[in-house]
Simulated assay, not measured.
Amino acid sequence: MREVVYSDGSDDDEERYGEPAVRDGAWDSRWLPLWIKLDQPALVCMFALRADKAIVAYLTGKLREAKWGGKDVFDMLATLFRIGDKEAPERFMELLEREAARNMYYMHVQLRRIVASMPKSYAPRLRAFGEQLTYESLRSEWMTLIEEIEQAPDTAEEENGRGLWGWLKSKMS
C-alpha cells in the first residue's frame, strides 16, 4: 500500500515533510479509520489530511509510548504539524525533553523541518534543550537553527504561504 501511495503522491514532495500525504479526494476517506484500527502509523500519516480528533488521539497515543528516533516517530510528529494540530509543538517538546538529549546524534532533514515548524515562542525551551546536547557539532547546528528561528520575523509563518521552514530555507541557501 505504501508503494501505491508513493506512486500516486504529489509532485511537490520537496515542500512536504513526513510521509507524503495522499492527494485530497484521491482516496476514499474510509481508509484512514481502517489504518487506525489496524494500528498502522505510517499509513495513518500518509492518509491524514486534516486535524481530526481520531487522528490526533491515535498519533498522540503512539508518541506517548514512543522512544526518540523510533520507527515512525518523526513521521508522526511531522504529520501533526502538517495537519495543523495546535498541540503539535508541545507534543514535540515533551518527546524532546523526555529523552532526546542523550539519544540525538545528528540533525536530519526531517528533524530540522520539525524544529523550523516550531512557533517562535518555543525558542527559549529549544535553546535550553540544545545546551544539553552531547555532541558539539550537533549542538552548534541546533543553536544556529534556533538563532534563525529567533531572528525570523513574526510574520514569517505567513510569508508566501511557505511558513517558517520556507523562510529559513531562503536564509540558509
Results as ranks from 00 to 15, higher is better:
A123C: 13
R113F: 03
M104R: 07
M104S: 10
I114C: 03
V73K: 08
R98W: 06
Q110S: 06
V109L: 12
W68D: 07
L133W: 05
A66K: 10
F81P: 01
Y105N: 11
F81Q: 02
L111M: 14
K120R: 09
S117C: 14
E87G: 14
P89K: 00
E90V: 08
K86M: 07
M107A: 09
L111Y: 08
L80I: 14
L96I: 01
R127G: 02
S117G: 11
L126Q: 09
G70R: 10
M107W: 14
N103Q: 09
D85H: 04
R82T: 07
L133D: 00
M118T: 01
R113C: 10
A100H: 03
P124T: 12
E99I: 01
M118C: 09
A78V: 13
R82A: 08
E131S: 08
Y122N: 02
F92T: 00
Y106T: 09
E99H: 03
M107Y: 10
L95S: 15
F92M: 02
G70A: 13
L126G: 11
M76T: 14
R112P: 07
S121I: 04
Q110G: 13
V73L: 13
A128K: 10
P89N: 04
R91L: 10
H108Q: 14
G130C: 09
L80C: 15
Y106L: 11
R113P: 15
F74S: 13
A88T: 06
T134R: 08
E87H: 07
A66R: 06
A88E: 10
R112A: 03
L77W: 01
Y106E: 06
P89R: 01
R112F: 15
F81Y: 13
T79M: 07
F81L: 06
G130A: 12
E97N: 09
V115F: 03
L77D: 00
V109W: 05
L77P: 00
Q132E: 09
F81R: 04
F74C: 10
A101C: 12
E87P: 00
L96C: 01
P89V: 02
M76L: 05
L77Y: 00
V109T: 08
P124N: 05
E131T: 04
P119S: 12
Q132S: 08
A123V: 05
D75R: 07
I83C: 15
Y106G: 01
R125H: 10
G130P: 04
W68N: 15
V73F: 04
